[in-house]
Design a protein around this nucleic acid. Sequence first.
RNA 1: GGUGGGGUGGCCGAGCGGUUGAAGGCGCCGGUCUUGAAAACCGGUAAGGGGCUUGUCCUCUUCAUGGGUUCGAAUCCCAUCCCCACCGCCA
Length: 472
Amino acid sequence: MIDIKALREDPQRYIDGAQAKNIDVDIPALLAIDEDRRSLNKQREDLRAEQKRISKEIGPQIGQLKGKLKNASDDESDAIKQELQSLEAKPASLKKEIQTIDDSMSSIDEQWHTLLLQIPQPPDADVPKGESADDNIELRTWAPEGYDVTKSFAENTGFEPKDHLTLVNELQLADFERGVKMAGTRHYVLTGNGMLLQQAVLGFAFDLITQKYDFTPMSVPVILREECMVGTGFFPSGREQAYHIEESSRGSGHDLFLAGTGEVGLMGMFGDEIIDAAKLPMKMATVSTCFRREAGAAGRDTAGLYRIHQFEKVEQVVICKADEEESRMWHQTMMGIVEDLLQQLELPYRLLQCCTADLGAKNADMIDIECWMPGRGQLDSDGKPEGAWGETHSASRLYDYQCRRLNMRYRDEDGNTVFAHSLNNTVLASPRILIPLLEMHQQQDGSVRVPGCLQPYMNGMTVIEPQTCPTS
RNA sequence: GGUGGGGUGGCCGAGCGGUUGAAGGCGCCGGUCUUGAAAACCGGUAAGGGGCUUGUCCUCUUCAUGGGUUCGAAUCCCAUCCCCACCGCCA
């Protein structure tokens, strides 16, 4: 959520920001409503103040009169009753006025809040302007010693690569048909060494982030209340992307939503809290199952392990003081961790500075990390894929946008409460990461080499070879 | 799922419908005392919004949430949510 005060002071900045992000919101309408809301509120407050004042004045009198009434003669009692009536009349008329304002306030308030939640965070000035993801800018690339990403896989290795679907089938690492049978399109079963490999990459990634980089390991809910989804900024705009558990329709409590990322739980944990400043920065990591409906992606990446409804992800989150420098520093640090991870996995990658159009409402800045996937991309004249970069990580810098929504604050040196800054980044998401892993480390004989860092997580296995398993 | 008990400030905890934004305690901050510390004592200590005369100013909201009764609600009524205990079921 943006700061309404900042919007009042500099609406243009938010109008430009929304435009740069290609997000359609009516900021002048919000400002008009905000104005109405404030003036109505002022009226109401004045009336209430008056009401309170009168009430304090006549309250004791009424009390006294009512006491007298109990043991009064008939004559006296009539006089007292009249006096009571006239005393009570004045605040009663104020009450009606207040109620009228209350009624118009409640509808205005709702509109105000709905609009406010939709206003995107303006991109930082140093984020390049762009029209679409095509305008993202490559920051740097890395490839293992001896591998040149500008050349084809065959030129690098001396043999034609298979794509991950072929590898997965030949090595019996996944069973798509049975996944679809059970749960529908975009579902899969990881089988035998496929599951072993997934557990290995997740274990490696989780140990790296928690042990080498000292992020606190956490397990958080992945079925969450709507407040968490709104608070982390995934709702209302991304409502269609989340699975919805309609518990309320069964007469019980409230609805729940399946999280698309561990970030929701890691951040939601501290909603409505005033955090002890000494605990900042808080560095946390979780490994969780992630659920995405992929609404609107019909027909895209339908085959294989790239775009699926359910996957596992190790996620890193940092909550730090509201300091731009510190925030930027953590952003870099979190990307450095991913670079370390990908280098140990020996996977070519590049960092992409996302342009304004690719940011999403909540980010001030976002860097994607993409791995080289030889089996992806356009087909060449021989019908072979040219290879392509595929997104495997995404590092967001949000300033206080998320913490403001979540009402997550800390106390600064002067004792003031301040909304914290938050950042998040993928550490590793599987099975998507298996695509570059299998495709890059395939060998001419059809087997797949296991990088050194994963071998301890695979009972010392150094090569993945064809196997038989119940799904074979 | 059944029955019962509860939700009050950073925490614990009191609160006959009328200066109760809320006693008391703990914690925290400041002070006195002390060579220093502790103890003791004294004082301070909620958040959020709005206004303009921007002030050690005025004002509103907030005692789980939403509604209601009332001139007036932390206090009474209704609904919802949440927590705890016991029973049932259970990875």
